[in-house]
Nucleic acid binder design. Sequence first.
RNA 1: UCCUCAGUAGCUCAAUUGGCAGAGCAUCCGGCUGUUAACCGGAGGGUUGCUGGUUCGAGUCCAGCCUGAGGAGCCA
Length: 429
Amino acid sequence: MAHIENISEFEGESVTLQGWLHNRRSSGKLHFLTLRDGTGFIQAVMSKTAVGDQTFLQVKHLGQETALTLDGVVRADTRAPGGYELDATGISVVGETHEYPVTPKEHGVDFLLDHRHLWVRAERQHAVLRVRHSVVNAVRDYLNTEGFILADTPVFTPAACEGTTTLFPVPYFDLGTAYLTQSGQLYNEANAMALGRVYCFGPTFRAEKSKTRRHLTEFWMVEPEMAYGTLDDVIALAEGLISSVVGRVLEERGRELDVLERDRGPLAGVVAPFPRMTYDEAVDILREAGRPIAYGDDFGGTDETILAKRFDRPVAIHRYPAAAKAFYMQPDPERPELSLSVDILAPEGYGEIVGGGQRLDDLALLEQRIAEHDLPKDAFEWYLDLRRYGNVPHAGFGMGIERVVAWICGLDHVRETIPFPRMLYRLTP
RNA sequence: UCCUCAGUAGCUCAAUUGGCAGAGCAUCCGGCUGUUAACCGGAGGGUUGCUGGUUCGAGUCCAGCCUGAGGAGCCA
């Protein structure tokens, strides 16, 4: 079976393509039909003499997104965007369509999001989702090759992983309220003590009332965790992972990047090692740039953009003040007020794509931090067991897939990087 | 939660000082043998987000509300 993706293998041959009519341009005796089949887009040329008057007239009245199978001969043509065209010899209409809403002209964001179930058929959206597929595959391949075991963590959780972030409550039979996971990390730590190097990869839910181009309420996150791992191990792993993912997209999604008109230059330079700076150094840079930042504050979106724009590849910022990070971060032994944490900021203003660090492994200090954060100690007893039995240094991070895809594709909003985005004011379709 | 902006034909948008509701695309009809968001000619298509107010007259001015977008905070 021929697909548009590998149509070059069929040059000179008769093929049948199963797909949908993406667009039609007609003259008196020629139809130019753009067909899409899920793997790509191709133009078919249908002449009146080749198919006869009756078929030619029928095709003239087919609407956009009509489902059809098209028979024809594959021909190389320099005028065609993909390098190949189809000389149509026959057509069979599978599903008629009239007045398809998402026309080839411009549309507003609200209209497009209301029609997301149809918008995903558009050429740009098709390209983004194929890039996402490659990103996800590259992540899994890299971690698998590095000896990580996939050990997925639960979506229903009994309490907050990090006390601060807002959670989505769900009624859970007779056991009261469960919450949708906001991170698999705590369970990852348990799995790492069993399997050594592990990762979880699944949806994550944040009920924050964030309404920006970088936020979804439901997003996908990959979280590797390493027993006997350190902060340096985390930074090295993240560098390897990110550069591997970018390399894979450049290798296998060139056509999609062309459709998105993505400049390859900034992506080609994304190779390890990445520049690194401490939180202290970052604060100095921001103050020199005139930002009124108080020492100890976390960085805002504008701050992140200023820092990231100084480099041609992602930058790792490490050793944040402990107060600015979650309760489970290991203190820096040389300066206990700092944490062995790291954020990696994507270039070109795309912000934080990775956050992680070395986990707090001192039982007494962990108990103290849980108390300081007013977290229910009972709910964390199992987590404290990890420090009681076979306790070792360990480290890990989380990487947000949608932000990575948005950056690689050069999009201005993460909502286009997932088939059906979930946002503060949008739950449908 | 706060700040800013927007809502007129299926879609994207115009409408001058408050004075007849418009265009392109889409749809329908016709034309064209190399189009790339094709083009050319014709036709149909309106509760101007909602409620109230000012006025001889409101898409336009006033008040309230609804919906959405961008940003802040927070985060991946």
